[in-house]
Simulated assay, not measured.
Amino acid sequence: MISFTLAQWYGWISAFLWPLARILALVATAPVFGENSVNARAKLAIGIAITLVVAPVIGPLPDVSPGSYAGMWILLQQVLIGVALGLCMRMALAVVQTAGEFIGLQMGLSFATFFDPGTNANTSVLSRLMYWIALLIFLAMDGHLMLIAGLAHTFEVLPIADAALGRSGFGSLIEWSGQVLTLGLVLSLPLVTALLTMNLAMGILNRTAPQLSVFAVGFPLSLLAGLVMLAIVLPQSTPFFDRLFSAAFSAFERIVLGLRP
């Protein structure tokens, strides 16, 4: 007759539950996997599938009962790690959304908003368009596969333990979040500069020819010029997106190293 001890059951539960908490937290917050358009059951299935592959190769786990206070603390730590890493990658796409907001404001499309189920808020049409373009480039660069590989590697660099997490990891996350506004401005700078120059020219023209209605001529002109420049600039932005995602994965690595006890 086959029998199992309580310690064995605890060991099996811990070997699956703690990695699953980290993986599901990242899947719920990271781009591609964490989109609201992805069904919750699909997210759970992805998390379980990755856990079934990763769990057997994880090193020794702490000898702690998963139902004890120490086990719950380890579970909470894994959730925090997964959320921090997922938000790190999410901020790379927030850069693109910020650039879209800047460009839309200068083009006069800031009022063209719609309810975005992904953020549960009103979002600029141009910002959402650039977001999906960046997401497709992320997929074309196999960013989702690199994200899964990086997640599996975190169990080697940052193993599951009952020790406290390092504080510098969260500091690296905050530091990376400060780049959202800066990089968003850099991405939108060519279009914003050109449109601002054109608006200044229209203002000077209005002063020299007051009978010319700037509101009747300037708005369609700004919109048309913005769309033409957007069609020219966006195909040339792939190197910027490549560097942006590389910087995001570098921040990913810094966060993992900083969270080590």
Rank of each mutant, 00 (worst) to 15 (best):
S168A: 06
V186G: 02
W73F: 09
V180K: 03
W132I: 14
I103T: 06
V83I: 15
W176K: 05
Q211I: 12
G108W: 04
V79D: 00
L234A: 09
I160L: 05
G100S: 06
V157R: 12
L244A: 04
N36K: 11
S3T: 14
P62L: 08
A152H: 11
A25M: 05
G218C: 10
I148N: 14
V57H: 08
F114A: 15
S177T: 10
L200C: 07
E253P: 00
A55V: 01
L223G: 10
A149Y: 11
V57F: 10
F138R: 04
M72I: 12
F245S: 01
T197F: 13
A231P: 00
T98P: 00
S222Y: 02
A209W: 05
S3A: 14
G100L: 06
S124Y: 03
S246F: 04
A112D: 15
V38F: 05
P239G: 08
L52P: 06
R22A: 06
N206H: 13
S213D: 12
L185K: 13
P239W: 04
V79R: 01
G178T: 06
L244R: 02
L165V: 02
A248G: 02
P210S: 09
A94L: 15
G178E: 07
F252V: 00
R254K: 14
R254F: 00
A112C: 10
P31L: 00
G100R: 07
G184L: 01
P117H: 07
L139T: 04
P66K: 02
N206P: 00
S37H: 03
G71D: 02
V228C: 07
F4K: 12
I2W: 08
P210R: 07
M141V: 04
N206Y: 07
P117L: 11
L173Y: 01
I160M: 05
L61T: 09
S168D: 09
V192R: 07
M130F: 13
L181N: 08
M1I: 08
S124I: 01
V54Q: 09
S110Y: 06
S124Q: 12
V256N: 04
G34P: 04
T208I: 09
L26Y: 03
T193F: 11
A45K: 06
Y10R: 10
M229P: 02
Q8V: 08
A99H: 03
I48S: 07
E253A: 15
L223C: 08
F215Y: 09
T208A: 11
Q106H: 06
G226A: 05
L87T: 08
S222K: 09
N206F: 09
L6P: 11
A149E: 15
N206M: 12
F240V: 03
P60F: 09
W73K: 14
G71R: 01
V83S: 01
L196R: 11
I133Y: 14
